[in-house]
Amino acid sequence: MLPPSVLFWGRRVYWASVLLVVTALRQGRDQGYTVEKLKALFGITRPTLTRWLSYFRQIFPCSQSWRRLSGRLMPPVAEHELPRGLIERFVQARGDPELGLMACLREIVLGL
């Protein structure tokens, strides 16, 4: 049986980059995008967004990928800041949003 993180990233219709960005945009309701705005921009539904947020709150922090990655981040990214804090860290390190997002995805999805 495959681990939940592999199932989550491997069998979704949405690209991993969209999943990561949309979830980060929704984080922090004061600053985050509304469900209606995300639906208009990306065509996702509330249940889909809820499932994605649940993944980053409950499953990903327990994954081997996160444990391996979090041990290399100094200062560490708090679990309650996932995935936005992780994206921000990679963008800051790379100095470019596109390169940062690609590096973040490589680490999360492939564990490289």
Rank of each mutant, 00 (worst) to 15 (best):
L7H: 04
V22N: 09
F42A: 08
I87R: 06
I108S: 00
P83L: 04
G111H: 00
G10T: 02
R12C: 01
L110F: 05
P61T: 12
G71Y: 10
W66I: 09
L105D: 00
R84I: 13
K37Q: 14
K37A: 15
R46I: 09
R68Y: 07
T48L: 06
W15N: 13
R68G: 07
I44Y: 01
T50V: 13
R67T: 12
A16W: 11
R57G: 08
I44D: 01
M74I: 15
P83V: 03
R51Y: 10
F56P: 04
P61F: 12
P97K: 00
A78H: 11
R12W: 00
L105C: 00
R29G: 12
W52N: 07
P76Y: 13
Q58K: 15
R26V: 08
R68Q: 10
L20G: 08
D30S: 15
V6R: 11
P97R: 00
M102C: 02
F56G: 03
L2V: 05
L86M: 14
E81P: 14
A93H: 03
F8C: 00
S54A: 07
E79M: 11
L112D: 09
A16D: 11
R94Y: 08
G100Y: 02
E36Y: 12
V35Y: 13
R12S: 03
V21R: 05
P97E: 01
M74S: 15
G111S: 01
R67V: 13
E81M: 15
G43L: 08
P47K: 09
A24C: 05
F42T: 07
T23S: 12
P3I: 06
L105K: 00
R72T: 14
E88Y: 12
F60R: 04
A40K: 11
E36F: 12
V109K: 02
P4R: 04
S65C: 13
L99H: 02
P3N: 12
Y14D: 06
A40W: 08
T34L: 10
R12L: 00
L38F: 01
S63C: 09
I44C: 08
E79R: 11
G85W: 02
L19F: 01
L99V: 05
A24Q: 03
R57L: 13
R26D: 06
I108W: 00
C62A: 15
G71F: 10
L38D: 01
W15Y: 14
A40N: 10
G43E: 09
G95D: 10
D96M: 00
V18D: 13
W66N: 06
M74R: 15
S17L: 08
L101V: 05
L25N: 07
V13G: 11
L49W: 08
R106Q: 03
Q31Y: 15
R67F: 12
L49M: 11
L38A: 01
L19G: 02
R51H: 09
M74P: 15
P83E: 05
F60T: 03
L25Y: 08
C62I: 12
P83F: 04
V6I: 13
A24I: 03
V109I: 05
G32Q: 04
L53S: 12
L38S: 01
C62Q: 14
L2F: 05
G10I: 01
R67C: 13
T48W: 06
F56D: 03
E81K: 15
C104A: 07
W9Y: 02
L38E: 00
Q27P: 10
F90S: 02
S65E: 15
E81V: 14
Y14G: 04
L25W: 07
R46T: 09
P75A: 11
I44K: 01
I59S: 12
G100L: 04
G100F: 03
L25I: 04
L99I: 03
